[in-house]
Amino acid sequence: MAPPQYRGAINNGFELCISIGILIANVINYGVQKIEGGWGWRISLSMAAVPAAFLTIGAIFLPETPSFLIQRDGNVDEAKMMLQRLRVLKKKYRPQLVIALLIPFFNQVTGINVINFYAPVMFRTIGLGESAALMSAVVTRLCATVANIVAMVVVDKFGRRKLLLVGGVQMILSQFTVGAILAVKFKDHGVMDKEYGYLVLVIMCVFVAGFAWSWGPLTYLVPTEICPLEIRSAGQSVVIAVIFLMTFVIGQTFLNMLCHLKFGTFFLFGGWVCVMTLFVFFFLPETKQLPMEQMEQVWRRHWFWKRIVGEGEEEADQAQTGAGAIAMSAAAHSS
């Protein structure tokens, strides 16, 4: 629904709202941990019902999108023709499917949810106190929120690829630097000086900011832009499903990885960021300010995807030629 020149900024508002929500949660956690008696966690847990209530009530008044209304009230014969066309052109959507699968996968293997889930534990482990560790989680999320706002401002000016590439390099350097510091100063079971603990905090802020103005919001924007109307709902469903699945996997395995790989965990995440940055460089086309109707041309011009899209077009041409021949034959017999 958004105009092409503002589509990126508006879509990035989703990630901004997530960052604001996590920031508020971290501030609440920092505040309630000072409550005597140890029952402050009940406040943190129960406060989650507030946004859930807003979502539930808001869903009642949520309108349908114009594109859905057009589809729902369209001509039945035209819908049948479109279904036949989609079955013929299924290869045409393979680039979108690959990207809709890999973008959210790469989003999670950056290790961002390690920071979201275990930041206080990590900072406490490397030498910061209980209160300082919770405040560190607030600081990192504040950096992410500011970076989300920056992304909304620059995404339609510099484009998607540049943000993903620069953010990827920023995260690579951050992960490798943290891994090196932990390897030298913390080792396996050592104790790190607070000065180095705060240095790790600063680098983690750089990492979180790099994610928050690139891969964070663009994970939702890019699949939305590249998927045509016919498969957009399915594409977004794939994105969300992969994110939830990988969030579960990372959340369940990180502590074991940290115990076995130790500082190598950060090198592992850094390696994944290298892979995904190369993927963007070679395989992800730019979609900045491009009308949805012209998105198909992007795949036809891409050095790799044009081979796959071209195959689909050849099949479509053959199908149309065959249909035309059948129609002409039927007309000849009837005459």
Rank of each mutant, 00 (worst) to 15 (best):
G58V: 08
A59P: 04
A59R: 13
F61S: 09
L62Q: 10
L62N: 14
L62R: 11
P66H: 04
P66Q: 07
F68I: 14
I70F: 04
R72K: 14
D73A: 09
D73M: 06
D73P: 07
V76L: 13
V76Q: 09
D77Y: 13
E78Q: 15
E78M: 12
E78K: 14
M81K: 11
M81E: 15
R85W: 07
L86C: 12
L86N: 03
R87L: 15
L89Q: 05
K90F: 15
Y93S: 02
Y93R: 01
L97C: 07
V98Q: 00
I99Q: 01
A100E: 00
L101E: 07
L102R: 02
L102I: 09
L102S: 05
P104H: 08
P104Y: 06
F105P: 03
F106G: 02
F106W: 11
N107S: 10
Q108L: 14
T110Q: 10
I112M: 15
I112G: 14
I112V: 15
N113W: 14
V114R: 08
V114K: 10
I115G: 04
N116C: 13
V121C: 12
V121D: 15
M122G: 07
M122P: 05
F123C: 05
F123W: 01
F123A: 03
T125L: 00
G129L: 09
G129T: 11
E130G: 10
S131N: 11
A132D: 12
A133E: 09
A133V: 09
L134Q: 06
V138W: 03
V138P: 05
L142S: 10
L142W: 04
C143L: 14
T145Y: 09
T145H: 04
V146G: 03
A147K: 03
A147E: 08
I149K: 00
V150L: 10
V150S: 03
V150W: 00
M152L: 07
V153E: 06
V153G: 04
V153P: 00
V154S: 03
V155H: 04
V155C: 05
K157M: 15
K157Y: 15
K157S: 13
F158K: 12
G159Y: 04
G159M: 05
R160E: 06
K162A: 10
L164M: 15
L164G: 09
L165H: 08
L165N: 12
L165V: 14
V166D: 07
G167A: 06
G168Q: 14
V169S: 08
Q170E: 14
M171D: 02
I172C: 02
S174D: 05
S174V: 03
F176C: 06
T177W: 13
V178M: 09
A180T: 08
I181P: 03
I181A: 02
L182I: 06
A183H: 04
K185S: 04
F186V: 05
F186K: 00
F186S: 01
F186L: 11
D188C: 10
H189V: 07
V191D: 00
V191A: 01
